[in-house]
Amino acid sequence: MSSTHVRTAQPATHEPDLVSDGYDAFHQKLRARYATLPTRLRQIADTILKKPDDIALGTVSSLAADAQVQPSTVIRFARTFGLNGFSEMQAIFRERIRSRSTSYGERLHALHGEDGGPATSVAVLDGFYHAAIASLDALHHHLDRKKLEKAITRLVGAQRIYILGLRRSMPVTRYLSYLLTKMEILHQVIGLESGMEEEAMLSAGPRDAAIVISFAAYAPRTVELFKELERRCVPIVAVTDSPASPVIPSTGLWLDVMEADFQGFRSNAATMVLIMTLATAIAERRK
């Protein structure tokens, strides 16, 4: 399971734990320090967060060119995060590609015990339990409370709430719709089984609001529909995992959720708790 604990690093100090913990640990550390980075280092961070695959397959020069900085700045960036240099940072992104490309069959095989036999049900339960707890701890400690209040205020005043979340976010959108239905709050889900996503938001406008839920590697269809909502001037609250996420609205109102995983199976625990909070707070304030 990827660690959600953020350790403080000093420049040019090697941190083997960051390397072994992998992309999630590096990603979380980068998000935590993003706002305090100098301008040039933030340019590199933006490039890394937007094009992680390019980092895995590129070079120091190609990253520097994309970020519009000198190659020496890339090395300084890596050392700022406790890595020895670009090669060590690149190894983290290459491992991300390898782990991401595993099929569900391969993930299930990874659950096998050291003797090659199937994992016990208790071991599987423990793995998912600890991933969920880590996700909830990260949400509790790192969620921006002021942004949460702004999001609730925006959604409370909406004539209709549109909900967009595909692929892994689909169960979350379904449950949010269920909650809003029970609380008699007018809403519209975009992109379930109908295949009529654009038609679902024909009436969407500035008097409405939308909740867009998307996580790396960001479903392209979600990004397309998000842009259409922006074009229609619909106020948006994004639930996502990176300051460089392609679904953060122009207003900058987004809620940060970082889910841990167990053997490649990523939790939805923190996202579920967050949307339960949103739905309940909206209903309470509308009373």
Rank of each mutant, 00 (worst) to 15 (best):
L125R: 13
L225Y: 08
R98K: 13
G58P: 01
Q28W: 08
I161M: 10
L229I: 00
A119H: 02
R79S: 01
A209Q: 02
L166W: 04
P206A: 15
S87H: 12
E284V: 14
I48E: 05
M183K: 15
H14N: 12
L18N: 02
K51R: 15
E114N: 08
T36W: 06
K150Y: 09
P118N: 06
M196Q: 12
T251N: 12
L63Y: 11
E95I: 03
A281L: 10
K287V: 11
Y218D: 01
Y178H: 15
R79C: 03
S2W: 10
T102C: 05
R221F: 03
T4D: 05
T80G: 11
G85I: 05
E284S: 10
Q28K: 14
V257R: 05
T73S: 15
L18A: 03
I161P: 04
F77Y: 09
K50D: 08
R42I: 03
R207K: 13
I236Q: 02
S177R: 09
R42L: 04
I185D: 05
A219E: 15
I92Y: 07
L49W: 00
S101Q: 13
V273Q: 10
T280D: 13
E184W: 10
H142N: 13
T8K: 13
T39F: 12
V247Q: 02
I190F: 02
A138N: 14
A78S: 15
K150W: 11
G85H: 06
Q28T: 14
I282C: 07
E106T: 12
G85F: 05
D53P: 00
E95T: 12
Y218K: 01
I161F: 04
G205P: 07
A9S: 14
V6T: 14
L136R: 13
I97S: 10
D261W: 01
E15L: 13
G165F: 01
I48N: 05
D115Q: 07
Q90I: 02
R79E: 13
L49R: 06
A32C: 01
R168L: 07
D241G: 01
A91F: 12
S62E: 15
V60S: 08
T8W: 10
F26Q: 08
H187Q: 10
D54G: 01
R168K: 11
E284L: 13
A219P: 06
S194P: 01
R154S: 12
Y175N: 11
V234I: 07
E197N: 11
P243A: 04
I92V: 14
I97V: 14
L255K: 05
M201R: 10
M258K: 09
K29D: 10
G191C: 02
L111Y: 01
S214L: 00
R98Y: 11
L57G: 07
F26P: 06
F86L: 08
R286T: 04
R286I: 04
A279M: 04
F93C: 07
L255G: 02
A64D: 04
A12V: 06
T271I: 03
G252H: 03
D46N: 10
E88K: 06
L202S: 12
Y178W: 12
A138G: 00
M1R: 09
A209Y: 00
T277N: 11
G264H: 09
Y175A: 07
A279S: 10
G117C: 03
